[in-house]
Design a binder for these strands. Structure first.
Lengths: 208, 208
DNA sequence: ACTTTATTGTGATTTAATTCACAATAAATT
DNA sequence: AATTTATTGTGAATTAAATCACAATAAAGT
């Protein structure tokens, strides 16, 4: 079982690039096309595929349709992925309205909050009380959630999610969540991303 | 000049942890406290510091105040970092209202859009026409921007930003931007983050 | 049928990142 | 003042990731 995060991210990128190529009418692709598309070397592409037992045709490259199928299978995205959001603030709202998820087979099923003013049981994506999360998650068999609450309530909301049966959290709160070790956490920390950018902008400035 | 992205990200995390410790009243810290706080090894912490010439006191650990100063200097965040946003949709709105930036010394100065319905020249954070970006960026000497427009307009908006003098972009659009090579791009791709999470949730499920 | 050409697949090699291990040493203790 | 103890700082060793290099080979051309 390969658990190199960068490698898995590359698989996602290959998949995205392949969708584009397919939509342009392409049927086959070579390792160096894919490499150019996502900005790596051709041998990196082949090595990644090799690691997961994906093979193409010598001289003939890879068939896009079959590659997409294999990548979907590996990434566990061969069906629609249903997710919930903890928190119904501005970020949650932005995510609920983000059009990019649909075409990736990601569906946000509901958001949960503690503030009764936010509740909207009959909205297209309902906003429900936190206490209803467990029932919802269990009956809809949901495994993945987004944590989009302010820092102060974040660990508590995460614990609610774990108790409900969520096994993976995409965490936007700027702290390190404590999690059971059968659960996965991916952090998106915007402050750190911006700070990182500032560093590299300064580095480039000094260089040039 | 160290350009290992993970290492720089760790420096930011150390800094965050140090703020917390300081706010709790701590004055000194040992490498293994920091290591625990951000989830790495103590020698990783010391090695990272050593790489940047940060030294502590043998037997005495590191003084938090001085560490914070040094980290701020390295990360180029010794002053307030002013940024703009391209796009004034839901995500931009969420970012403009995000309280976490202020305490990190990040200030969003303005957003820019092509849709006149979005304009709000006198709002606390003004929303201005794209054409005014260059003037604004030049006269405010801004170097960093967030790209929060839909995929179709993303490269165009990025080009506008580069033309205005922006040198670093935090990109939320799910594509690989073409950029001048004196400019830095950090990508935040939510689809990929979620897909990645799905993979690791599946891995953990098979393991357990 | 034979030759050339283009591309894969992967073992070997290189490079980069992390961890180990311990000398150096400053503070605390006796 | 000598001894013990705790911690840093870093070179050496290890591990992990990326790249190289080329044999294998399928298709195309002659």
């Amino acid at each position: 079982m390969i658990t190199n995060k960068n490698c898995i991210i590359r698989l996602s990128r290959y998949k995205n690039a392949l969708y584009r190529l397919r939509d342009l009418g392409f049927v086959k692709v070579f390792s160096d096309n894919l490499a150019d598309a996502i900005g790596v070397t051709a041998s990196q592409v082949r090595k990644d595929f090799s690691l997961f037992g994906i093979t193409g045709n010598r001289k003939g490259g890879y068939e896009i349709a079959s590659l997409l199928e294999k990548l979907g299978g590996i990434l566990g995205k061969d069906r629609i992925e249903r997710v919930i959001i903890a928190g119904a603030g501005h970020l949650a709202y932005a995510l609920m309205h983000y059009r990019g998820f649909e075409k990736e087979g990601i569906k946000i099923e509901a958001a949960f909050d503690i503030d009764p003013l936010k509740f909207a049981k009959n909205a297209q994506i309902p906003v429900l009380p936190m206490e209803e999360m467990k029932d919802f998650v269990v009956s809809n068999n949901i495994k993945v959630g987004v944590l989009a609450v302010p820092e102060v309530g974040a660990q508590r909301a995460a614990d609610t999610m774990f108790a409900a049966g969520i096994k993976g959290i995409l965490n936007f709160a700027p702290l390190r969540l404590k999690a059971p070790n059968d659960c996965a956490i991916n952090n998106v920390n915007l402050e750190i991303e911006l700070e990182n950018l500032v560093y590299f902008v300064n580095v480039l400035e000094k260089k040039g």
